Simulated scan of single mutants.
Amino acid sequence: MLTLTDNASAIVTTLVSRQTDAPDAGLRIHSTEAQGPEGGARLAVLVAADPEPQDQVVEVAGTRLFLDESAAAALDDKILDAGVDDEGSVSFAVTPQVA
């Protein structure tokens, strides 16, 4: 199952709380039409008030992520990290979990 670093959890929580006050809101990670450089799915994020009916919901220490089917499969054994640059732009990184 997807896990989050402490940075990612804090950043996702901040993003969600700044964009909506819906009590069940979270960050939705979903696949896009375009493919990545190696032909894999490209993923996009957006703040959502509720998950879509088919989304997998991942909750870690109060941080909620909604993953569509492709994102759930692609991120199943990964770690999500996040950072904020000097200009306030958020970036996400996905790394493999160490067994």
Rank of each mutant, 00 (worst) to 15 (best):
T95L: 07
T3N: 11
A99F: 14
R18Q: 13
A73L: 03
P23D: 13
G36W: 07
D6A: 03
Q35L: 14
R18P: 05
G83C: 06
T63Y: 00
R28L: 10
G39W: 05
Q19G: 10
T5S: 02
D85F: 05
V84E: 08
E69T: 15
D68V: 05
R18S: 09
A41I: 09
D55Y: 07
T95S: 11
A74Y: 04
S9N: 11
D55K: 03
L2C: 06
L15K: 05
L43E: 07
T63K: 01
A74T: 06
S91G: 13
A41G: 07
V47Y: 04
T3S: 11
L15P: 09
R64H: 08
A10W: 09
T13W: 00
V12Y: 00
I29M: 04
G88W: 04
V60W: 01
V16R: 03
V47H: 05
G36D: 12
L15M: 12
Q35F: 10
G62L: 04
D21S: 12
R28H: 14
I29P: 00
V47L: 07
V84K: 00
A44K: 07
R42Y: 03
L43S: 03
T95D: 06
I79L: 07
Q19E: 15
Q19M: 15
L46Y: 01
D86H: 05
P23F: 05
A71H: 08
A61C: 02
V84I: 10
D55I: 09
V98D: 15
S70C: 08
M1C: 02
A74I: 02
G39R: 08
T95K: 04
T3K: 07
M1N: 08
M1L: 08
S89F: 09
R42S: 10
D24L: 11
R18H: 08
V84Q: 05
D24W: 06
D85Y: 06
D81G: 07
L15T: 06
T20C: 12
A99G: 15
G36M: 07
G88M: 09
A93G: 15
A41L: 10
Q35G: 12
Q54K: 13
D6F: 00
A34L: 13
L4K: 00
A22D: 08
L75R: 00
G88D: 13
A34H: 12
G36T: 10
P51R: 06
D86Q: 14
G88Q: 09
A99H: 15
D6V: 02
T13V: 02
A10H: 13
Q19P: 12
S9K: 11
V16M: 04
Q97K: 14
L4V: 00
T5P: 02
A72C: 10
K78L: 04
T32M: 14
D77H: 06
D68M: 09
D50E: 15
I79P: 06
S31P: 08
S89L: 09
T3F: 01
D76N: 12
T32R: 14
E52D: 15
V94I: 15
V12W: 01
V45C: 06
A41V: 13
V84Y: 01
Q56L: 12
A44S: 10
A61S: 05
I79C: 05
S9F: 03
E59R: 02
V60Y: 00
L27I: 04
P51D: 09
D81W: 03
A49N: 14
E52L: 08
A71G: 10
L65Y: 01
D81S: 10
V84D: 06
A25T: 05
D55W: 09
G39D: 11
G40M: 03
E33Y: 12
